[in-house]
Every structure is written in C-alpha cells, then in structure tokens.
Design a protein around this nucleic acid. Structure first.
Lengths: 116, 116
DNA sequence: GGATTGTTCTAGTAGTCGTAGAACAAGTAG
DNA sequence: CTACTTGTTCTACGACTACTAGAACAATCC
C-alpha cells in the first residue's frame, strides 16, 4: 500500500484518498482497522503531516474513516458488498477497451450515468 | 449542449472537454462535424478564447478533434460503437448505487480496472 | 501524569485557472 | 490575388489550490 506518484497531476492527498477508498472497497482494509497516524504516515512517505491529514479529513467527511485524538484513524463500519460491483466494473472495462475508449471518457460516462 | 457550471470545482475547460467527449461517444457529434470556432464559442458562453482553446487542444491531443487554422475544430473520424459500453455503464451505476458507493469511489474502481 | 494524536493557526513557495490583449501564420472563401 | 477567418504563440495579471513548515492546543490512551 501507499504507492504515491509525485509527478502525477493528481494531488498527493487525493492519491491517498483513492488508495484508502480502494482498500476499504476491496476488503483489504476492514472496519475497525487502524491506519497509521498522520505524523507516522507522513514521516514514512516523506510528506508533510498536513497533506496526510487533509486526506484523512476528506475520508472522515465522506464517512469512510473515524478520527479521534490519541487513537488515530480507524476504518468506519459498514463496508458494502462489492461482488456485483466488481463484476460490473470488469465488464465495463472490457467493453470500453473493445470500443477503444480512453479511461477518462469511460469515467465521464460513469459519472454522467450516476448523476441521474 | 454547452451547459457550464462556473461554481463547480471542475475547471471550465475540463467541463467543455467532458461534454465534447460525451457528444462524440453518444453520436450527438458525428465525425466530420464542425464545432464553433474558439472565438465564437467563447463569445456565446461569455468565456475567454484561451479557455475554449485549452479544451480544444486537450481534445486534439487525445485524438478526438482535428484543429486547422481557417477551418476550425472538426470531430475526428473513428467513432466507436457504444451499445455494449452503455449497457455495462448502466449495470455498473445500478450496482454501485445498491452498494451505496459514491461516484468518486466508483470511478476510482473503474480507473483501477482499466489500468491493468 | 506522560505520551500520542488530531485540531487549529499563521505563513510561505509553487503551480494552475481564467482572463486579457496583442501579433502572427495558415487556411478558407470570394 | 485579396480579404477574412481561425488556430498558434507570447506576455501578463489576480485568484485560487497544493504542499510544506512550524507552533500551540485539546482530547484520548496507557
């Protein structure tokens, strides 16, 4: 876990957010599991504490994490069942690849479909 | 077409890019069709020409548009068949909604699946 | 009580977004 | 050929975001 690409156009905090979301969605991170503290993770990734905290706060605001002083960041309860979702994702990825669509166009289509 | 939201956190040029991509993907914009010139579109949307041109250049770099001086922006050839893709998108949107996933988490899963 | 950890504050640098004006080059249309 | 259109390139500016940095504070854990 925690593979960051500093040259990406995606902000570092957003990369952290995405990886935690994927971990929770895939079951790699289970409800109740404790993540490294902001200072700890920042030190090991050679980032600033505020960068990590910003990611944690985004995840807290969307209900993925619970943050408490002294204890750190804990994965919230209520992990959804993703078997249907993962099958649908695989089918979509295959269809989009056959059609020659870019990743961006595909995600744009998904975003459009979910906003209705 | 051309519905922009200036209050969105998504940049204006990115909104233009997404709309052209969707139009081409859905067949609303057909290969060979001519888009408004950058100055023209900027005037009608009350934007700066550079903002529109930035969107056009992104679309040119990914092969969606062809830009030529004096003629303007033309949709490139090679529009894919999207029947399979659209069915897969609809199924994924439904599954993600049932699982309670956010739009962002869902698109993150799609991006991850297509990068393999 | 002492250590840990999130919270909040100020502050600085770098880069992006959007706007703005201008001049230029290549193509179109007459 | 001429006039017009259109994309290309350049500099410049204000506003905002991303990231880093240091410090002090408050709630929690052991």
């Amino acid at each position: 876990m925690w593979r960051l690409d500093p040259t990406s156009d995606e902000p570092l905090y957003a990369q952290l957010v995405a990886q935690v979301r994927l971990g929770v969605a895939h079951g790699t991170l289970r409800p109740g599991e404790r993540l490294p503290s902001a200072r700890e993770l920042a030190a090991s990734l050679e980032l600033n504490m505020h960068t990590v905290l910003r990611a944690y706060q985004v995840l807290r605001d969307e209900g993925t994490l619970e943050l408490r002083r002294g204890r750190g960041a804990v994965v919230a309860v209520g992990a959804p069942d993703l078997t249907d979702v993962e099958r649908a994702v695989a089918e979509l990825a295959a269809a989009a690849r056959r059609a020659g669509l870019s990743v961006q166009t595909t995600t744009t289509l998904v975003t459009e479909a979910m906003h209705r």
